[in-house]
Amino acid sequence: MYAEKLKVTSVYEKTRQEHKKVNDRLAKQLGDKATDRKIGIKYKPEHFGDQNYNIQKLKTDIGKFQDANYQLPTDEQLTQCEKLILEKTLEPINPFHAPTLNISTLIDETEILVTKKISESDKIEELVKDAILNRWVNDGRAHHKDKRNKCAFCGNPITEERWSELERHFDKESEQLENDIDTFAASHGERSEGW
């Protein structure tokens, strides 16, 4: 019986020492998680919200997770919480002040631009009558000039005669008027969509 007692005592002592090692290791891990400067919850108050966090609070939190009624948050809930944590206070928005408009001046300036006469000679009548087509041809001209010999739309050759007609239609006077309209619209908070 004495030999049996020695054997049991030896096993007990060995088990107790192993338990103490594991328990000490766990206590250190818990302590580090609670208060370590690099990984501790205490030093991440912007994320966890408690600058006085300690090992006792960590053990209390672990106890909550071990409760049979505890439900893990969903990935969506975790994502929402992370977004809330990362939210930052934005600078206050400056108060809106409605612009003071002098309508009569705008009307006068607009009338000057839209009634400005440009030379009608050598204009392509079909383009003069259709502003959308005029804009489309002008845009296409920019894509083709000095780049293509054939029309990218229909594949037909673009003759020198046609280029001359287009150059006469979209002359300097017309381009200047379009630029003036764009500048006027931009300076009054509007975007010009062509003329």
Rank of each mutant, 00 (worst) to 15 (best):
K129P: 01
H97Q: 14
N179S: 15
A142R: 12
Q77N: 05
L72R: 07
R162L: 09
K145T: 10
P92E: 12
K172C: 02
T60V: 13
D146H: 09
L101P: 01
I132Y: 11
A152S: 10
A68M: 12
I62L: 15
L90F: 06
T105K: 15
P73H: 04
G140N: 05
E126V: 07
L113M: 03
F170A: 00
H143P: 00
I103F: 08
K123E: 04
D171N: 15
I118T: 13
T105H: 11
C81V: 15
Y70M: 05
E87P: 00
H97S: 13
S104K: 10
E178G: 03
Q176H: 06
E109T: 04
H144L: 06
R141E: 04
D146Y: 06
F153Q: 09
E91F: 10
N138Q: 11
D146W: 04
V128I: 11
F65V: 12
V114A: 03
T89Y: 07
K145D: 05
E91K: 12
Q176E: 13
T159I: 05
T100G: 03
F96K: 12
I112F: 12
I85V: 15
S104N: 14
C154T: 02
I107K: 14
K145Y: 14
I132N: 10
G155K: 01
T110F: 07
N149L: 12
Y70L: 01
L84W: 07
D130P: 02
D108F: 06
E91V: 10
W136V: 06
Q66N: 14
F153W: 08
A131P: 14
P99M: 07
W136S: 05
Q176P: 00
C151Q: 00
K172V: 09
E126C: 04
K64N: 11
F65C: 11
W163I: 03
T100M: 08
Q71T: 14
D122V: 01
G140F: 01
D61S: 11
K88A: 07
E173R: 03
A68D: 11
E82G: 08
I124A: 02
R162Q: 10
E178T: 09
K145W: 08
L86G: 04
L84H: 09
T74C: 03
N156R: 08
K88P: 01
F65T: 06
D108A: 13
D180E: 14
P157W: 05
N138A: 13
N179C: 04
T89P: 03
I124H: 01
E161S: 15
I112P: 00
T79R: 10
R162S: 04
K145F: 13
D75M: 10
T100Y: 08
S164D: 14
N149E: 14
L106Y: 07
